[in-house]
């Protein structure tokens, strides 16, 4: 009885925010405009397969860049004195206090052909045409999602027992060996959650690609948005697109988890 009561808030939450919306998506994806069952929406998706691949590729690229940038940063924060850590985490979070759209608009005006960066570069006779390219979109994603990579990495690293690192040193490990044999495996949970928190929103983003990537529908998020807003909108195809995106993402994440676990075992055998 007690158990059921304590689970109640979770069940309500799940129902309102997960089960019902999922059911609606499913219903739209497998019906036509008259509400009759059909697989036509799913079949139509084939024409967007290239966009799916591009989105996953760009999301993955942004995720990897975030990881490469965030890992050393998180590590250096975690190894500082406690009050310094707090300040540094604050600074990392600072951009997040500003609205996501504003930040992206800011990048747009920075990167424009006649933007601030090109204005400054122009002073020394250079020009950088980056706006409306894949690179600009990846840059925008990295900038926006970097804190979501840093924070989970930092929080596992801050909890790491310093004596375990000293033990590795005591047993003859140099800094590189400590990183590879102790810090990296112990921070694996942080890597998994950081990657999840960056990859999922990156793949499905549409604002960044629209503002920094130009008018063409470059990411699957843009396509989905167009199905729900504006003239050519079609809720049924939009729902089917979302559903497939979700399935693809689940597959990516479970692959990622498997690689992580496998590495653990492998690491255990070879480390």
């Amino acid at each position: 009885m007690k158990k059921r009561l304590s689970a109640a808030p979770f069940a309500v939450w799940m129902g309102i925010f997960t089960v019902v919306p999922m059911a609606i998506v499913l219903w739209f994806a497998f019906t036509d405009e008259n509400g009759a069952f059909t697989l036509r929406n799913i079949a139509e998706i084939w024409q967007y397969s290239g966009t799916y691949v591009d989105s996953i590729w760009m999301g993955a690229l942004a995720t990897v860049i975030c990881l490469v940038l965030a890992y050393p940063l998180a590590l250096s924060i975690a190894r500082k004195a406690e009050h310094v850590q707090r300040t540094m985490v604050m600074i990392v979070m600072l951009p997040m206090w500003m609205n996501f759209l504003l930040r992206t608009y800011a990048w747009m005006s920075l990167l424009e052909e006649n933007g601030l960066i090109n204005h400054l570069l122009g002073q020394i006779g250079l020009h950088w045409s980056i706006i409306n390219t894949d690179a600009a979109v990846v840059l925008g994603m990295v900038y926006n999602f970097l804190p979501f990579m840093i924070l989970p990495l930092y929080s596992v690293m801050a909890k790491m027992d310093n004596r375990v690192i000293e033990a590795a040193q005591d047993l003859g490990s140099n800094n590189w060996q400590i990183l590879r044999r102790v810090i990296l495996p112990l921070s694996a949970p942080g890597i998994v959650s950081g990657v999840t928190m960056v990859f999922v929103p990156a793949v499905s983003t549409f604002v960044i690609s629209k503002l920094l990537g130009g008018s063409k529908y470059m990411m699957i998020g843009d396509v989905i948005e167009s199905m729900f807003m504006g003239d050519g909108c079609n809720y049924n195809v939009g729902a089917a697109l979302s559903l497939v995106l979700m399935v693809l993402m689940l597959i990516c994440m479970s692959l990622m988890r498997r690689v992580d676990n496998g590495e653990d075992e492998l690491g255990g055998m070879m480390a």
Binding site: E166, A167, D170, G172, N174
Partner: peptide, 19 residues
């Protein structure tokens, strides 16, 4: 530390939890 020919048993062991 890693170049010294001494080894330590730490107050409260500090074993590697992932191994």
């Amino acid at each position: 530390a890693h170049k010294r020919t001494v080894n330590t048993i730490f107050q409260r062991y500090a074993l590697f939890p992932h191994l």
